[in-house]
């Protein structure tokens, strides 16, 4: 049975204007991502992978081309509709964690629920559950600066998962972590994939990409290759 397509991109391009000059961040990219795929997007810096990630995450819209997210045309959406899509459908995990520094872990995890209008009591209940799932229940009243890098990233993952999004979009999630912690985080993603989540990993590290089941390589704003990873890494021993 054909799996449900979540992301459908056709011939998209992104052009930035730098003064008089036009810079092509993406030239012509087409791809489909289906439910429960585990995709790594790779490429050297300047290849356009950040731009692609921003577009996939509905943080930005393409200059040309078509983007259907669960069959909804993203190009036609207003700012607020994009915000709603991000809130409900996309779970972000960033390289720099992007937690609110003055809020504790619990409040950080609750944040997306604030914008989807969940009542405070229910919010807290859900956030505690999400933190338990990443084994951080005992640290939930700590602020980000009182947590280690790995713990912060786990808070971010709990936050990404709280609205049960269609995709999890992780931008260099291990970029600021040591190798031992990186593997712990990759184990977490693997577990999420087993549970049926769709994961898109943006990275420039081959080691990290190897955990994914499909690897898309970008170069100069074009897809260089898009192949399944026949032997995804499943060894999480340090």
């Amino acid at each position: 049975m054909e799996k449900e397509v979540i992301i459908n991109i056709e011939n998209i391009a992104k052009i930035y204007r730098m003064g008089e000059e036009k810079v092509y961040a993406l030239r012509n990219v087409s791809l489909n991502i289906s439910k429960n795929e585990y995709v790594a997007i790779m490429g050297p810096s300047g290849s356009g992978k950040s731009t692609l990630m921003n577009i996939l995450g509905c943080l930005d819209t393409p200059s040309f081309g078509k983007y259907l997210f669960t069959n909804q045309d993203v190009n036609e959406m207003t700012d607020n509709e994009l915000a709603a899509i991000r809130n409900k459908e996309i779970g972000f995990v960033f390289q720099t964690f992007n937690l609110l520094p003055r809020s504790n872990a619990l409040k950080n995890v609750e944040l997306p629920l604030v914008y989807s209008g969940v009542k405070a009591a229910r919010r807290e209940e859900m956030a505690i559950k999400a933190l338990e799932d990443v084994s951080l229940a005992d640290r939930m009243l700590h602020r980000p600066n009182e947590l280690s890098g790995g713990q912060r990233q786990r808070v971010a993952i709990a936050r990404a998962l709280i609205t049960t999004p269609s995709i999890i979009l992780a931008d260099e999630p291990t970029g600021n972590l040591d190798s031992k912690t990186s593997i712990e985080i990759m184990k977490l993603f693997h577990d999420l994939w087993i549970k049926g989540n769709t994961i898109i990993l943006v990275t420039h590290e081959e080691d990290i990409a190897k955990y994914a089941h499909r690897i898309i390589r970008l170069r100069d704003g074009l897809i260089e290759s898009d192949k399944p990873n026949e032997n995804p890494k499943t060894n999480f021993n340090v």
Binding site: A84, N98, P112
Partner: peptide, 12 residues
């Protein structure tokens, strides 16, 4: 930026 990425509408 973080709030908007997580779905905060302009109004909020």
């Amino acid at each position: 930026g973080i709030r908007k990425a997580l779905g905060a509408p302009r109004r909020s």
